[in-house]
Design a binder for these strands. Sequence first.
DNA 1: TGTAACGTTTGACACGTGTCAACAGTCACA
DNA 2: TGTGACTGTTGACACGTGTCAAACGTTACA
Lengths: 347, 347
Amino acid sequence: MNSSGRVSIKDVARLANVSQGTVSHVLNHPDRVSPVRREAVEKAIRELGFVRHEAARHLRAGYSSTVGLLLLDAWNPGFTEVARGVEDTTMDQGWTVVISNSARDIEREKTYLRLFYEQRVAGLIVVPHDQSADDLHQIRSGGAPVVVVDRPETGDHGMSVAVDDVAGGELAARHLISLGHRHVAFIGDEAAAAPVHARLIGVRKAVAEAGVDIRLDVIPAELTAEAGRETGEMLAAMPAGKRPTAVAAAIDLLAIGVLQAFLQHGIGVPDDISLCGYDDIPFTRQLSVPLTTVHRSHYDMGTTAAEMLTSALSGQVPDLRHVVFQPELVVRQSTGPVQPRSRRRTR
Amino acid sequence: MNSSGRVSIKDVARLANVSQGTVSHVLNHPDRVSPVRREAVEKAIRELGFVRHEAARHLRAGYSSTVGLLLLDAWNPGFTEVARGVEDTTMDQGWTVVISNSARDIEREKTYLRLFYEQRVAGLIVVPHDQSADDLHQIRSGGAPVVVVDRPETGDHGMSVAVDDVAGGELAARHLISLGHRHVAFIGDEAAAAPVHARLIGVRKAVAEAGVDIRLDVIPAELTAEAGRETGEMLAAMPAGKRPTAVAAAIDLLAIGVLQAFLQHGIGVPDDISLCGYDDIPFTRQLSVPLTTVHRSHYDMGTTAAEMLTSALSGQVPDLRHVVFQPELVVRQSTGPVQPRSRRRTR
DNA sequence: TGTAACGTTTGACACGTGTCAACAGTCACA
DNA sequence: TGTGACTGTTGACACGTGTCAAACGTTACA
């Protein structure tokens, strides 16, 4: 044991009556060492409780087996699914994943990006803030491949995995329109995040293409269940004739809040108002009224991003540099045909 | 720029016409360097896009500013709260947190513990698997302080933060008993995790101390919403007279599943059956029937664990080596007095 | 017996940084 | 002018590992 109280490769070599180089070979190229020495070294390792020093290994080898994952919001169930996909895929291929969370704070994001760069991570998967292209570019110029998740990108230098949220918005709106709804509200702040903006564009597109006269109200709201509850209460307070007959929420969390407010105020879903979410997080199935929503394959986004990254790391050029998933409408019980004016709840 | 294509401190020194030592001083002890040189160095750093190499720094300095957080189950909302608490506290004090997730897999836990050890993390916060005392001890012997979360520990060498789940089980059971319930079911596999076992002990204790004749059914179930739904359906299929009048679930996720099944089968909560959860995860408030549950301060567990760790890292001995939080009963709307045999739903 | 070929082991070196003793330069004071 | 005190700067070294050329030992063959 050396002066710092830690066991190094030298101590192992001394105990096993062998040179440092041999110990290193046992660790990295066991086939180059004779069985006798190998066993002696392994015994010494066990006796001393030696564990190799990753920083030294990294410094000498010049490469790292660590991959960084920077999440925009680790507490959003959708993104934890992304993380699970990334973890499952990279673990299988021998990479270590380090997860960090920017919590939608651009300063925090910058800090973590710098940290990742200082650690010389081999590669990086980022669910980025809206305004952080610069920092991502800096990492890229350092030589580490970067996969951007949940922001559609194009071009030759970079990789991305995203969902076609314009199409998703269209799906939701078309579904509601086809059920006969002619007064629809979209809930969510389009300035809050690029994907929300895209969804609204899709909704507007479907409305414009419907060929019938449709009124679309856009109600800005934070992306939380609490904001959903407040918005739901506002809607509940409106006279029934003035109220939209259908609501499309920018994310499921919002829809959950809206649903809760509606039920509390005796507004039936879908009998009085239809409600459509977005994301298809696991909890949508556990709600008192299972939610119609637009499914995004978060887990698959994670695995795909991880596969792109690992293939880039092994020197291959991935077949596709930019993958866009198509969302799918999942019809459950929170949406239904528009009711005639003098309607009654069925149960 | 050196041969590997990366910029090192030497390159900065050369460009700024200064020695390596001076550059290092600019980075670590700016006050020791004259303003003229400092500016020259800073300019060179900007021009070259120099970012220091954490592995080399770590190797030379002998210490790391990284703290590991190993979660048992990152997808359980309770544990993500713990992570949030840890992150907020350690970030403030300049530590970097690396999060990993053992996913209740003991092999994965071992792998990550080894990885943390190889990285020579300064300290470690672990929400451990039931059978992993050995590995934790190995880390401790390496000199890094370890805080164990959610498993009550005692003794002088080690730190822990936990919740008195026996008391929590008692709280839940006493509440139900005080409402007049005499036939109670506990749902959850006591072998699944130590905290669940503790809760059941608490329930049994309350039943024994009640002084009245109480029937307690223990129904093993996995710790998922899906398992809760299945158990709820089984209970719903029983004739009303044979059914327990109250259910205590081992965790909220289970209770959510039970609730969903009850409502689907027309069983009123709390009118037909009272339902009590455990954990107080955020979603309990968003349910169609807000859940009575036992609150555990997950976020505070995280901050406390982080504070203990950071004070240990700065050489102080924390005032308390083992902290046990007291749970609190949160009465919402899913529990109510037992109804006479010929009862009717009120709404 | 001598030599070549081969497989195993060795020892020195480099990776990029922080530290520390030593050194140079400046200034005030005697 | 010489001395001491002080500030700023330097250069060598160490941290623990992986690699690589060189050395070593063994065996096979002439």
